[in-house]
Design a protein around this nucleic acid. Structure first.
Length: 233
DNA sequence: GCGACAG
DNA sequence: ATCTTGTCGC
């Protein structure tokens, strides 16, 4: 996870909102949207999440690595850092990306695929958080968001776990609304980088254990909140 | 101008 | 995302 550091330094995160949008448009062309480098037999999946107190700029980030398909935690890393970039729909990666990348850099093992709490290409400029992280980490990534940012489901997803409906944006399939649990709102899955949609959906479903959100995301969420409260905040 | 808007 | 109490449903 060290190659990412060079790329990030070349990139630079101190940009205007307009420049950020332009960066996304440029980088989206570098995305690989098919299963490339994704082992046929995945053994390690990563989940990452951020937590912070309202009105505060101190962010806590945590990444957990789970053995797959057992989904047992085998490694995790975390850190806290000041963040000033505001939350702007469509530019989330510029706010949460830097600290998330640092958490990944502290890992000893490299995951076969990483799941992020946000969109992959189901984004206004086709370059959401998961895509951004995938390009910088140079590993397969999947976006698994709790709500919609862009696109519209072609139809309503069934109510059975595993049912899904394609997400359409500008006549393109950019993801899927996936039911991970019966009678519970579906999640928005989209490929981030180096992976295709069908494989992304398969991995998300195989990562669920009775809850709406996949285990990597849940575990990272629990971990980061546990760390934040233990840090007096 | 109006509505939408990941976390 | 965070804050926050109770409440409805399987």
């Amino acid at each position: 996870m060290t190659a990412a550091m060079k790329i990030r330094n070349l990139h630079g995160w101190n940009v205007t909102y307009e420049e950020a949008g332009k960066i996304q448009e440029d980088l989206r062309e570098k995305l690989v949207l098919h299963d490339e480098g994704v082992p046929g037999d995945i053994r390690l999946v990563a989940g990452a999440d951020i937590s912070y107190a309202k009105g505060e700029d101190l962010f806590y980030a945590a990444v957990v690595l789970l053995k797959f398909p057992e989904l047992e935690i085998v490694e995790q890393s975390s850190l806290s850092e000041r963040v000033t970039f505001p939350y702007i729909p469509g530019l989330l990666s510029f706010r949460e990306g830097p600290v998330l990348l640092k958490a990944f850099e502290k890992l000893k093992m490299v995951p076969d695929v990483a799941i992020f709490d946000g969109q992959g290409i189901a984004h206004p400029r086709g370059f959401g958080l998961a895509s951004h992280m995938g390009l910088f980490l140079a590993i397969p990534t999947i976006g698994c968001a709790k709500t919609r940012l862009a696109g519209a489901p072609r139809n309503e997803a069934g109510n059975r776990p595993g049912d899904y409906a394609h997400l359409i944006l500008n006549d393109d399939v950019v993801g899927a609304v996936v039911r991970t649990k019966k009678n519970v709102k579906p999640v928005f899955v989209s490929q981030g980088h180096k992976i295709g949609l069908e494989r992304s959906i398969e991995i998300i479903l195989a990562s669920c254990r009775g809850y709406r959100l996949p285990e990597p995301t849940r575990k990272a969420h629990l971990a980061v909140n546990r760390i934040r409260e233990a840090s007096d905040g």
